[in-house]
Design a protein around this nucleic acid. Sequence first.
DNA 1: GTCTATAAATGGATAGAC
DNA 2: GTCTATCCATTTATAGAC
Lengths: 210, 210
Amino acid sequence: MQSKAPSSRSAGRPPDPAKRSAILAAAQRLFAEKGFTATSMDAVARAAGTSKLTAYRHFGSKDELFASAIVARCNAMLAQASDLTLPPGEPRAALIEFGHAFLALILHPDALSMHRLIVAERERSPQLGGLFHAAAILPTQQRLARIIERLALPVDDPMLAAGDLLALWRSKPMMPVELGLPRMTGEDIAAHIARAVDLCLAAWTVDRRG
Amino acid sequence: MQSKAPSSRSAGRPPDPAKRSAILAAAQRLFAEKGFTATSMDAVARAAGTSKLTAYRHFGSKDELFASAIVARCNAMLAQASDLTLPPGEPRAALIEFGHAFLALILHPDALSMHRLIVAERERSPQLGGLFHAAAILPTQQRLARIIERLALPVDDPMLAAGDLLALWRSKPMMPVELGLPRMTGEDIAAHIARAVDLCLAAWTVDRRG
DNA sequence: GTCTATAAATGGATAGAC
DNA sequence: GTCTATCCATTTATAGAC
């Protein structure tokens, strides 16, 4: 039954992990820069310093390589997101600081290109949307909700409150990015972050007569 | 020299406006359904019941046809948006009604596909982003700002206030649409609209001690 | 023997010209 | 309508490396 397999499986040579990494890194960069259709397997292989055949050996098809590249980048971004913790200070300053970290995260070119890819190719790889939501969006909202709790802010539902504040923070700066218009300056963004915090704090701390 | 051209210039035939409309309509539908690259000029011509040559005669190139299709659809959407006027009733009900009209507008399949196209192909046709902003986003925000003024709500800057409320309304329902996840139900959306209105009204009407 | 690089070939689709 | 040139995903052929 196994006259041909001496040890277990990798008789001659195991697939080279370094090659796999190089292909994956090249795919991440090229897909992010040029999109799926405009990126050829030839270009990926060339950029990885390897051959097209090796790329196919490791990933099977262009679609699988694409999904693997997005997942890898998603995980890399998650590692970055770990500095979204509770900042010190009184509530207003703490929320503003969190807002800055959040916007720096989602306006980072890598995050933008990954988000664009997931949205643009969501029909080709429908699992990526759910993966991104579970790995990036939900955790961020949960962290902010936890911070709102710790700050003892009088909200009924911390997750909903966090969603509101994140929506306010994200919408205005993201719009010009999506449409290819001139972006907000750092100053404008800082003012925008603080204004959103003030709006929420005002609403949350309203004296409720209900 | 002109044995074949009886009248003056348009020797063979003048460009047929009906053909042009048919091509434009087919292009709008196909680009919206399948995106730019997945839509071939052959498919557009076939769907329009005409020949590829006629399409090239009228629009010159695939890129120009694409831009023309987006502009046409943008104008069509604008006509639809005219029901974003001041609803009757007290402020909370009026804002909620406006919110429903707004979300119905931006969640309409035509609006979604147009927005997706503009974002996805913003490098191919960079002018479309600014056009969409000027023709759709800004007018909507201005209308809501005007309504906030008419309702005599105590906000410092009606345009900023309108932007906040629109951001809250839009963010949560749009996220699953962009990522290809299950959408919010009509009930959830209604509750979400009212919650956003209550948040803003609470913040705007806070007793300011400054 | 199994991996790899190089190269060429297959098969299909498409923009644009005539 | 047909033709042409181009591009691309995927496979196959060939020869060398561990």
